[in-house]
Simulated scan of single mutants.
Amino acid sequence: MAASISASQLHKPLPSSFHGGWGSSICGETTGMLAKSVPEVVRVGKPVRFRPMMKNVNEGKGVFAPAVVLARNIIGKKRFNQLRGKAIALHSQIITEFCKSIGADAKQRQGLIRLAKKNGERLGFLA
């Protein structure tokens, strides 16, 4: 059986729980009330940015940490960091020369340097 719909039936409103037109719900009094409840100018201050701290997780730990901290306090932080940088560079050169002598590739050399850094942290050299 085919159902037929007449033109007069198309213009009848469908039953629904929505009471009101699209104009009043989107552009009507609801929008006006919403616009009044929000301030016109919202000032946002400059966001607070925290600088990342490059700290040793094992600071103060390790056998050599007290000696390293004492040396840093006696020599001064700037001079101490210069000496430590030179010592780390020299140690990396020694590791590089060792890798050349045994025929290790760059990846193995980098692994040894990382291992030396990790051991230095554990022993307290980087406190």
Score class of each variant (00 low, 15 high):
residue 70 L to N: 09
residue 97 E to N: 11
residue 35 A to K: 05
residue 66 P to Y: 10
residue 115 L to R: 13
residue 15 P to M: 08
residue 72 R to S: 08
residue 118 K to D: 14
residue 42 V to H: 00
residue 55 K to Q: 14
residue 26 I to T: 05
residue 118 K to L: 14
residue 117 K to C: 10
residue 32 G to K: 08
residue 30 T to G: 06
residue 75 I to V: 14
residue 21 G to D: 13
residue 66 P to G: 14
residue 20 G to L: 06
residue 47 P to S: 00
residue 36 K to W: 00
residue 64 F to T: 13
residue 60 G to R: 03
residue 14 L to V: 09
residue 59 E to N: 06
residue 42 V to P: 00
residue 39 P to L: 05
residue 76 G to T: 03
residue 10 L to R: 07
residue 35 A to S: 07
residue 32 G to F: 04
residue 104 A to I: 01
residue 111 G to K: 06
residue 59 E to K: 06
residue 30 T to H: 06
residue 12 K to Y: 01
residue 14 L to I: 11
residue 19 H to G: 11
residue 45 G to V: 04
residue 26 I to K: 01
residue 115 L to T: 14
residue 44 V to Q: 10
residue 67 A to G: 08
residue 43 R to H: 07
residue 97 E to F: 04
residue 97 E to I: 06
residue 119 N to F: 13
residue 49 R to H: 12
residue 38 V to R: 03
residue 26 I to M: 09
residue 93 Q to E: 15
residue 16 S to D: 10
residue 81 N to E: 13
residue 42 V to E: 13
residue 96 T to I: 08
residue 58 N to V: 09
residue 22 W to N: 04
residue 16 S to V: 10
residue 49 R to I: 08
residue 60 G to D: 07
residue 28 G to M: 02
residue 112 L to W: 11
residue 120 G to E: 12
residue 84 R to E: 10
residue 17 S to H: 03
residue 34 L to Q: 01
residue 28 G to E: 02
residue 120 G to R: 03
residue 105 D to M: 09
residue 112 L to H: 01
residue 37 S to V: 02
residue 42 V to D: 01
residue 29 E to G: 09
residue 78 K to N: 04
residue 64 F to N: 12
residue 84 R to Y: 01
residue 59 E to W: 01
residue 78 K to G: 02
